[in-house]
Design a protein around this nucleic acid. Structure first.
Lengths: 222, 222
DNA sequence: GAAGATTCTTGACACTCGTCAAGCCCAGCT
DNA sequence: AGCTGGGCTTGACGAGTGTCAAGAATCTTC
């Protein structure tokens, strides 16, 4: 009975409809962040909301549409997280400090969301239907990181030695490792990450005096 | 009825018993690598073996013991993968080439195993019972990578700028990104990874002439 | 070859899952 | 007031899950 994508009918309760979808997505994200993809059921999602399990099927065709909607909904919130840092910094060191601080804060405050993100990204390696949504958001994250790195290089008056993909891969690896430790109860993961990032970022800049080798950017975008 | 951990009784069919366990673990790993943790059932595992689903409970108390056994079983096979490369190389460049080639090969031939590993590592962020096994193998992988990096530095006559954890995090990030792309069908991920690693590794060495900054090693081991 | 232990199959159980349809509730219109 | 229809609840279904027990099949040992 529900309409195709987001509009319901012409009478106009479009916003009400989307509002409920977002409300359910919020509950779903909270549940997924707590239990993980494997153990999250629609009933559990509904229990974490103020509705019952039937409602989910009123607003989403099936479980999959809900999950994908959640991924996109989540992306909209997280993808501009470092833009302020980039915009406000006036020196390379200031940018680096702000970036590291924001990473620490993200780790501390958004750990469930991020373990969910890694979970879903991994699921996309098994479930092809998730792949498109995941690839899209992953690319957006890469661009977000690249805005930081390239601006950092600019402020330092040097050039990055890596392309966007490599820069994202490196930083994401450190962050994921820190998240793993932090979730396991290692409080020092916060400071460790900060220190590692402070150490890594300068390495991503080509030395001013000499022409070093570069980490080649991917030839194409597949 | 089954014995406690691995020995069965004193008559001596210890090896037979363990052999079956390993056989089942092999089937389980194949299934898990294909379907992922979330969608793998004991019946499916048994179907991929020459036994029926009841046998699983004859050799493993429950699903969890099987999974954990699999993780450890898998680790035993993969953790010395780069040792030959380290032992055989006589120059830094040779080591680097061999390492990159081995990474390419791993990506091409063992993609299902590795997406499974990342899946399980992520699950450990939701399921505490997995944490210990995962942490153990993760540390072993870190040591494996560190053997490569430190030997690489040694051959180059320089010092690493990172500690073992950061080195592992960085390389793991690149590998995971490449795996994601490769599984999604991007064949160029192989060469991209190789190029990125060739670019990254020299950055991990402190310049011979000057005393650069270092990526601090974690203070403690949590 | 019989007796006993071990290994494996089969079928059942209690439960949870996603899905769906029937109907209740209540705001808004005539 | 009475009706209408969208929003929501409830309860059911079939399929699939982990687990387990009872017994068949196979091997071991005397």
């Amino acid at each position: 009975m529900a309409a195709s994508t987001t509009t319901r009918n012409r009478t106009r309760p479009v916003d009400k409809y989307d509002e409920r979808r977002n409300q359910l997505a919020e509950s779903a994200l909270a549940t997924l962040g707590e239990l993980g993809y494997a153990k999250t059921s629609l009933r559990e999602i509904a229990n974490n909301s103020e509705f019952t399990h039937g409602v989910v099927h009123y607003y989403f065709r099936d479980k999959f549409e809900l999950i994908v909607y959640c991924v996109r909904y989540y992306k909209a919130r997280c993808v501009r997280r470092y833009d302020d840092v980039v915009a406000d910094a006036t020196t390379a060191d200031e940018l680096l400090d702000g970036f590291a601080a924001k990473l620490r804060q993200t780790l501390r405050e958004e750990a469930p969301m991020h373990r969910l993100w890694y979970d879903l990204r991994n699921q996309s390696m098994f479930e092809e239907s998730l792949r498109e949504a995941v690839t899209t958001i992953d690319r957006t994250l890469e661009e977000m990181i690249w805005r930081v790195v390239s601006r950092y290089a600019e402020l330092a008056g040097r050039e990055p030695v890596t392309g966007p993909a490599a820069a994202y891969g490196l930083l994401d690896g450190l962050f994921q490792q820190a998240l793993l430790g932090y979730v396991a109860g290692d409080e020092t993961a916060l400071e460790t990450l900060s220190g590692q990032v402070h150490g890594l970022m300068p390495l991503l800049l080509r030395p001013a005096d000499q022409a070093g080798r570069t980490v080649p950017a991917p030839q194409s975008r597949s």
